[in-house]
Design a protein around this nucleic acid. Structure first.
Length: 835
RNA sequence: GCCGAAGUGGCGGAACGGCAGACGCGCCGCACUCAAAAUGCGGUGGGCAUUGCCCGUGUGGGUUCGAAUCCCACCUUCGGCACCA
């Protein structure tokens, strides 16, 4: 029996376990049998509470979050395993680095997706969710995640959605939740309205049906009030750039001016337009109104009225599939005119469906010279095209397309001729303000978040309508408003939720006057459930009288690391930021931004396409777990490509990982009475792999971390010197975050105390990485011609002497003189010939 | 159209101003075996060839002693947004 030295250089001196490491006869299976090993360690970890953390007592809290999964009927697919494994590796690394890692998981089980599946299968969503959740738990355990199982959440639990409703109430009380009649997106298949963010190119995010526009009264959250903050914080967030860009584009803040045009008699009134190019005001040759603009039907002269009415009617029932796509420009004259505020010219007013009702004021000033849409429209209808910006003052030729370059100068613009575009924007806006026909204005692409859904499977919106008192929030102490049990949960398409046909639910007493009242029957958007779940995790399930415990919030939040899919860039990730800002403003949270760091993982495709049930190409991990075990599956998915880029799933490479893990197993199994410590000749190799793996794991470069371990394994296997216990132990520790089960098995075989996952992660000594010899590449005119082995730090003069003495160098020098010599110490000399 | 990411062997990918193709898959050869599988060892970008040489990182230019890497233009693929004035 041999005691192992603490090995201070490995950073293990602080470990209470390392000192106990003893050499002993191996207790390890002759062959690598993950199917036996993995369940054994999973059970042991659970018994020992590996993954659980004392949230109150933790000294170095580290909140490692992964996205709240929806427990689908198909079960976990390899895309989920890919996502969670990457996050789990990060959590395991941080835990070994001495952090108290909190890595919760839960189930986002409300929502249209669950409900649609339930309807299709004829199973009540509650029963379906219970079965799916069980299956997910089983699969997540099999995956070997380091989850804090004691804090698992289910968003359909009344103890959870009670607080989802509470958040709605808080926003309602603050005036951030309001009800209005508006044109909204209606999915005819899901029979509910959808938020703008849930409409993908005119199609329903969940079922891909073409979305229609309906004018309905709905609940909204005033997210637009937070647009500036949501946008302005972005540069400072440590988030994947692509997510930040997507959010900035979605918020779509654009600055310009609001300008007012007076109508010319016999019409009367004003038309307000928004433009980002007030500098082109002199180029305005017409005004165009959206078909649903209030004045569109009101101003046409008798002569034009029938045509306009027909156009408006046709626009209203336009093919829904074409909504949101670019079409040939059409429009009709109204016969009415507006006065240009500066030139006083009469501008014709038209109705055109390329003008969007929902953006700006629903009307535009047509500047065909400098806006391509206006140009196309003007050409189609034979309207005047006027140039007011040019590359230079004498560039005044006819336009064949809109000139949109903003680096030009103003022409044909009266007193503003010669000004730059930027200067003219300011000058004309100032003029508009001075003369009273306009002002600087900012508009947004972002709309308020439509929160109500005419569905069954969600948290009822906690509001009551009373004839005497109006719209009244359900008092906090009466929450939750329980989702009633019913078998009639299929939406009828009437525009009302299935809850509306349950009299016992609808009819209630007004909380204020106790008179008869009706409940709101819509439920809230599923994204509200997932906008705050990470606030609840630390407090669940002990805290029952509040959504979350302020002390735990202070200690554990904001989230240290959040890893998830990029598809939520403008959905979950934007909504959540908004909810946190609103709660912050209400004094209910001590921070505005919930996630310190967010990294978007890549997408796993299959045969080049998205993995989806409708394509019938969902790959479940159970088969891989059965055949190869969780560790092989984890490594295989991580080895597919860079974690933040994803890759195409194909089982081609899995055998390589399987063989690698078997070789690792064999390396430890076959070690016979190894020396305690690493021979000095091999220390640099050992420290190099520690450095490489550490850096790659930190950077989520799991594919190259695995490659580094493979290389080191090959090195050890092929070495003729015996492999020391220290090298085997270090290798095992480096492997632990990636292949937790095998690492535990090997660690035990090496005599380590349970658990490998409680050990400090190895550190390295940079001074040991310095080699005493260096290979210097010798180039002639930039081409490699030879290599020199020199002692490290050899001076330029000596390297030059040796290099020039080489036959191959002389041959390529071919008698020419040396013009210059580039020298990079210990790496390269480049001899440049004089020609 | 706009925004973003990416184009490297037969394949997944590595290197991200300094030896292109790490690592793995596949393939070829060898060993072990009666044989096969498994395992181990060796080879594997293309071309020419006797040491060696030439070509090669989507295309075309540029910067540099030196470019897969930086800059400009273009092409292609994937993802997101899309008549947002």
């Amino acid at each position: 029996m041999t005691w192992i030295d603490p090995g201070s250089w490995l950073g293990l001196e602080s470990s209470p376990y390392y000192k106990c490491l003893v050499w002993r006869d191996f207790a390890i299976d002759a062959t690598y049998r993950p199917r036996e090993v993995e369940p054994r360690w999973q059970a042991r970890w659970q018994d020992a509470g590996i993954g659980e953390v004392d949230l109150g007592a933790a000294k170095r809290p580290y909140y490692n979050l992964m996205m709240f999964p929806y427990p689908s009927a198909e079960g976990l697919h390899v895309g989920n395993v890919f996502a969670f494994t990457g996050a789990d590796i990060h959590g395991r690394l941080r835990a070994m680095q001495g952090y108290d890692v909190f890595e919760p998981i839960g189930f986002d089980a409300f929502g249209i997706h669950s409900e649609n599946t339930a309807i299709k299968q004829g199973i009540h969503p509650k029963a379906l969710v219970a079965a799916n959740t069980q299956n997910f738990r089983r699969q997540l355990r099999r995956m070997g995640g380091r989850f804090s199982w004691s804090h698992t959440l289910d968003s359909t639990d009344p103890a959870y959605y009670r607080w989802t409703q509470w958040i709605f109430l808080k926003l309602f009380e603050a005036g951030l939740a309001y009800r209005k009649q508006a044109p909204v997106n209606w999915c005819p298949s899901c029979r509910t309205v959808l938020a703008d963010e849930q409409v993908i190119s005119g199609h329903c995010e969940r079922c891909d049906s073409v979305v229609e526009q309906r004018n309905l009264e709905q609940w909204f959250f005033r997210i637009t009030a937070y647009a500036d903050r949501l946008l302005d914080h972005l540069p400072d967030l440590d988030w994947s750039e692509l997510i930040k860009t997507a959010q900035a584009n979605w918020i779509g803040r654009s600055t310009g001016a609001s300008l007012t045009f007076s109508l010319i008699a016999p019409a009367s009134g004003e038309i307000e337009v928004f433009t980002t190019r007030p500098d082109t005001l002199y180029g305005a040759t017409f005004l165009a109104l959206a078909p649903s603009h209030p004045l569109a039907a009101a101003i046409p002269t008798a002569e034009f009225r029938p045509k306009v009415a027909a156009y408006i009617e046709q626009a209203a029932k336009a093919d829904p599939a074409e909504i949101g796509t670019e079409r040939a420009k059409t429009g009709v004259l109204t016969g009415a005119f507006a006065r240009h505020p500066l030139t006083k010219e009469a501008l014709p007013i038209l109705v055109a469906d390329y003008v969007l009702a929902g953006y700006g004021s629903g009307a535009v000033m047509g500047v065909p010279g400098h806006d391509q849409r206006d140009f196309d429209f003007a050409q189609a209808l034979g309207l005047n095209i006027q140039r007011v910006v040019a590359a230079s003052a004498d560039d005044i030729g006819p336009l064949h397309e809109a000139f949109t370059d903003e680096s030009g100068v103003l022409v044909n613009s009266g007193p503003y001729d010669g000004l730059s575009v930027a200067a003219a924007k300011a000058a004309i806006t100032a003029r508009a303000e001075h003369d009273g026909f306009g002002a600087a204005k900012t508009t947004l692409h972002l709309r308020d978040w439509l929160i109500s859904r005419q569905r069954y499977w969600g948290p009822p919106i906690p509001v009551v309508y009373c004839d005497a008192c109006g719209t009244v929030g359900v008092p906090e102490e009466e929450l939750p408003v329980l989702l009633p049990e019913t078998e009639d949960y299929v939406p009828q398409g009437t525009g009302a939720s299935p809850l509306a046909s349950i009299p016992g639910f609808v009819n209630t007493a007004c909380p204020r006057c106790h008179g008869p009242a009706r409940r709101e029957t819509d439920v809230s958007d599923n994204f509200l459930c997932s906008s705050w779940y990470f606030l609840r995790y630390p407090s669940h399930p002990e805290v029952t009288d509040r959504p979350y415990d302020p002390e735990l919030i202070d200690k554990w939040l904001p989230v240290d690391s959040y890893i998830g899919g990029r598809e939520h860039a403008v959905l979950h990730l934007l909504y959540t930021r908004f909810i946190c800002m609103a709660l912050f403003d209400l004094g209910l949270l001590p921070f505005e931004e919930p996630f310190r760091r967010f990294r978007a993982h890549g997408t796993i495709t299959f045969q080049g396409g998205k993995m989806s049930k409708s394509r019938g190409n969902v790959v479940t991990p159970d088969d891989l777990f059965d055949r190869y075990g969780a560790d092989t599956t984890r490594l295989y998915l991580m080895f597919l490509g860079p974690y933040q880029e994803g890759g195409d799933y194909s089982e081609r490479n899995i055998e390589g990982i399987w063989r690698f893990l078997q070789r690792v197993h064999r390396l430890v199994k076959d070690a016979k009475s190894p020396p305690k410590t690493c021979a000095s000749a091999h220390l640099a190799d050992l420290h190099r792999v520690v450095k490489r793996v550490t850096e790659d794991l930190e950077a989520l470069k799991y594919n190259t971390a695995i490659a580094g371990l493979m290389e080191y394994n090959n090195l050890l296997r092929q070495r003729t010197d015996p492999v020391s216990h220290q090298e085997l132990a270090t290798f095992t520790l480096l492997l632990a975050p990636l292949a937790p089960h095998l690492a535990e098995e090997l660690w035990q075989a090496l005599g380590g105390a349970f658990s490998v996952h409680s050990q400090p992660f190895p550190s390295y000594d940079p001074s040991l990485l310095i080699e005493d010899t260096a290979t210097v590449v010798v180039q002639v005119d930039g081409r490699v011609r030879a290599r020199l082995t020199v002692s490290a730090g050899t001076a330029e003069a000596e390297v030059r002497r040796q290099a020039l003495a080489l036959d191959s160098v002389q041959r390529h020098l071919d008698g020419a003189e040396v013009e210059r010599l580039v020298f990079v110490p210990d790496r390269l000399v480049n001899i440049v010939r004089k020609i």
